[in-house]
Amino acid sequence: MFRRLHDAAKIAIEFEGRILQVAPHETVAAALLADGAEHTRTTPVTGAPRAPYCMMGVCFDCLMEIDGIPNRQACMTRVQDGMKVRRQDGVRRLEP
């Protein structure tokens, strides 16, 4: 659905175990939308699937687990080579 306007040199990130080639200036949310990700989290209360929405740090619908840290805003986080991204599956667990 989304297409990149320009071709750029790519770096690699991992999304749910899958390697994606993404442009280094992109946010995690933009990179995943360009890749066609259907949803990037499920909600804490009802478990409904959600995807990035406002793309400007306000709506918190793009929360993901990025490099092991849960509930990060994917639209406010720029991709880095080797970054590991997972869906935020429902509510964050607290470490024991």
Binding site: P44, L63, N71, V91, R92, R93, L94
Partner: peptide, 10 residues
């Protein structure tokens, strides 16, 4: 006041 991210019910 301060508000945190949502976490599991503790």
């Amino acid at each position: 006041v301060l508000i945190t991210e949502r976490i599991e019910a503790r």
